[in-house]
Design a protein around this nucleic acid. Structure first.
Lengths: 244, 244
DNA sequence: AAAGGATTCAAACAAACGTTTGAATGTTTC
DNA sequence: GAAACATTCAAACGTTTGTTTGAATCCTTT
């Protein structure tokens, strides 16, 4: 039988390949990229050491594969949500809440789905955002550029009074608070020592982040005229900190 | 020549010690802790390899020394500023702007002072905030705990209507946006491709961050009653988010 | 069954890692 | 001047790093 080429090799996604991805995801999340060894990964995955270079080529390419596996679908989900909001609203501009929701909800969904890495994976991406390694920065730019451009345009329509440059800044702050929150470091404990927050409830977390970001985006413009006063070196403090 | 040597060894800091600190500061900032080798550091500092372990004990202790050199004075400055504001205001509660200013201004001053590392150093600390390495987390907690506690109390007096737990969250978001902004990764370019921001003007940067954070802190409380709607896997939403 | 490609495996690779050593040099104190 | 301490230096320590190799094994196709 001249069966058409259904027997494909690419869609195979061999078992070892995913075992490596799973193990690498957890270890990269916990110790970071540089501090995680290939031997730890392959040991936890139960595969041979050489399997990484065979299936992925290098450690860096493995790291990118770990990220794309989850990030790509999530960003597509974000764009799909935004698309739907815009077509539903016709010409009317969207609310800030709605747009931010389109950014947050896919992340929330991912955080809940333990089969897709859960919040551990989000911590990994939050960490990657602060990594200066060129291959990471380049990868993230290429991965996020289209999504962020679309959302920036959406915010621009919703906040027409805001100069483009100001919007760029505020989006930067927004991404900071978001990725930092998703990274979920233990600075949290540092802030609220006596009333520890339930870190397992990511829904509440993002639900509280929303209003914070909305208010920040809608904040009145800064008055840049009289800024030299505060920034001046404080004159002789009378009751200062004891230099013991 | 009986000229008394002018106490060249200011037993506090030898020349090589500071050369190492300077070189390490730059390299840690650029490549991160794990990715920076002691041989790079000592080569750039022009000192012997063993000098690091002789003067600092280990690589980890060197890293902590790099951080404390700048961070300690900055946090003391923050506390001194807050102290002065509170004594000036007597019993009156401070404004959000003022408290945030006390956090931001010392960072701004440090960013301007190139002799103290400038903004490069701030990028290093922003990076350290996202690092999961236990010794880094422990060090930062110990270093920041008193300062954050004081500022949290100040915010609590200014925003009495805000539940303590909510305030903890918002402080977390605030620290996220702040440290992320200070880290100053190139995601900035990603957001504003066509209107690149002048990254050298840190004063304007932090001046714009202020209103964003003030508005976020003063945001109305989240309505936590009907939160299952948005987060739920696409069902039927009222207006806005509607699943396909 | 034989061939051929895909995958696994143990072993080794060179390079880099942080740290230690012991002698050589510099500096201060008696 | 000599003893005592502080610092520098070259060299090597034992691991660990990411990557490569070549043969063994599995699986599909002829």
């Amino acid at each position: 039988m001249d069966m058409p080429q259904l027997r494909l090799v690419d869609s195979k996604t061999s078992v070892t390949k995913e075992k490596i991805l799973d193990a690498a995801e957890g270890l990269f999340m916990e110790h970071g990229f540089e501090a995680t060894g290939l031997r730890q990964i392959t040991a936890e995955a139960g595969v041979n050491l050489a399997a990484v270079n065979y299936h992925f080529g290098s450690k860096e390419e493995l790291f990118q594969a770990v990220l794309t596996r989850r990030l790509d679908p999530m960003n597509q989900e974000r764009l799909a949500l935004l698309d739907r909001l815009e077509t539903d609203a016709r010409d009317q501009p969207l609310t800030c809440e709605a747009i931010i929701g389109a950014m947050i909800i896919p992340a929330l969904t991912l955080a809940r789905d333990k089969a897709r890495g859960g919040k551990n994976f989000l911590r990994l991406t939050g960490r990657a955002y602060a990594d200066p390694a060129p291959f990471i920065r380049q990868f993230l730019s290429h991965q996020y550029a289209p999504m962020i451009a679309r959302f920036k345009a959406a915010f621009g329509r919703t906040l027409p009074h805001l100069p483009a440059r100001e919007l760029s800044w505020r989006l930067h702050f927004l991404m900071g608070a978001l990725s930092y929150t998703l990274a979920g470091t233990d600075v949290l404990k540092l802030i609220s020592e006596l009333n520890p927050v339930a870190t397992d409830n990511d829904e509440l977390l993002l639900r509280r982040l929303g209003p914070f970001l909305v208010a920040g985006l809608q904040a009145p413009l800064a008055d840049l005229s009289e800024l030299s006063e505060l920034s001046a070196k404080p004159k002789a403090g009378r009751r200062g900190v004891r230099p013991a």
